[in-house]
Amino acid sequence: MRDNTLKYLLVLPAVLVVFATAIWPLIESLRLSFTVGRLNRPGSLDQYLGWENYTWAFSQEPAFWNSVWITAIYTVLTVALTTLLALGLAMLLAPGGRFRSGVQTLLILPFAMSPALIGVSFRFMFNPEFGLFDAFFGVMIPPLADVSWLADPILAFAVCVMADVWGWIPFLTLVLIGGLASVPQDTIEAAQVDGASGWRVFRDVTLPQLAPVLAVVIILKSIFSLKTFDQIFMLTNGGPGTATQTLSHYIYFNGMKYGQIGYAASVAWLMVIPMIFLTYAYAKFVFRKD
């Protein structure tokens, strides 16, 4: 067979699978978002409604805006905290050696853990009666001794952020260690010989060299933060009330619990829009080397 035919035949199955499992549902979601779309009402999935689901979300649903804000704050906090702490840990671990390499190996573990399980484990750690972190914070910060973390809207949100940061630091640290390894060592040494302080070397030499990797880390983490669902579901299930209801959780609840699949699809599509920008930015970094 000629290569010219073969090369298209080889990608065909993959293209078909990606189309059927990702592109089709995206388009079908878009269609559903313009329908009445009630799960319990046959025929409503084809009943055209125009933009009403979208205008409903924007004008009639405080819970939608609530989840938009929760998701936004959650994303900003988790991205900032994870990136900063991972950068710190990466700087500590980058020099290598047996001890540090051993620690790097351990870093894989939290990331191989199912996010749902991370949610469960943090619910465990913050149990008011026998949670280890609950007890720890109670001793360190006495005003927090008798609070029930997951029953308080702000503290429950804080626990969700902590669980997320805990789960993601290890992976981002590994990525940043990889990035630090590509910063030329002689440039750093030259700056040190010139008498630059540790902080100056970091700011003027390391950080600019690390910028592309840092950008990748921030974009990737933003995407995953925006999508957050599993942990929240197992940790607080959006509660107390709707204090930790992220957009994904809001969509799940409207679509699956209330059966308003058309409305859920419209909110889901509103969520796709920021993803398009982030993916575009990410793709630029992926193709940078080619």
């Binding site: 089709w24 979601s29 995407i223 925006l226 669902f229 994904s248 969509i251 993803m275």
Partner: peptide, 11 residues
Amino acid sequence: FVPAVVIILPF
């Protein structure tokens, strides 16, 4: 990068 919740509704 598409949120899983978008894909799952039509499925």
